[in-house]
């Protein structure tokens, strides 16, 4: 039976009908065509599908749209400023070469934003532990950790 639901995606209200088994990742990619959210493993392991749900990082392949009724979803498409410049985390990934093939990058960036906003991230070890839910098969993580360290103070000063 179709289900009527309302939520906000990247600041815009969305009202839609879905089947109750629709995953958030499927909804974002196939209904809203926000294909920046990637589906890697589809088993909640790799983190490529990470989005922010009311500001907190979640794996959208492991959440039903029905569960996020009236919630705020932010995807990689929703973090860039209106002038088209990059979010500080995106700019840092670019500057530090924190990506190679780029498949994990949207999820990695969404996860890193939540890490910097809500968790301890002052040391290399904390950042590595904080990113255990995101797999990258190219970089060996070194440049990703550098990118998070570079973006963190810029994000903190923008927040305050």
């Amino acid at each position: 039976m179709p289900l009527q639901i309302q939520l906000r995606v990247n600041g815009s209200a969305v009202t839609t009908e879905i089947t109750p088994d629709t995953l958030l990742a499927t909804f974002l990619r196939e209904h809203l065509h926000l294909t920046g959210t990637h589906v890697g493993c589809d088993t909640a392991s790799c983190g490529a599908c990470t989005v922010l749900l009311d500001g907190l990082a979640v794996k959208s392949c492991n959440v039903l749209v029905a569960q996020v009724q009236n919630c705020d979803i932010t995807t990689i498409e929703g973090i860039t400023p209106a002038d088209g410049s990059l979010h500080p985390m995106q700019a840092a990934f670019k500057a530090c070469h924190g990506l190679q093939c780029g498949f994990c990058t949207p999820g990695m960036i969404m996860s890193a934003i939540d890490l910097v906003m809500h968790h301890d991230h002052s040391s290399d070890a904390e950042i590595r532990a904080g990113l255990t839910g995101n797999l990258c098969r190219c970089t060996g993580y070194h440049n990703i950790v550098r990118a998070v360290m570079q973006a963190a103070p810029i994000m903190r000063s923008a927040k305050s």
């Binding site: 983190g47 990082a57 794996k59 959440v63 890490l115």
Partner: peptide
């Protein structure tokens, strides 16, 4: 438990 994303849900 699990990872940060799993712990949020």
């Amino acid at each position: 438990i699990g990872d940060r994303q799993v712990r949020n849900r």
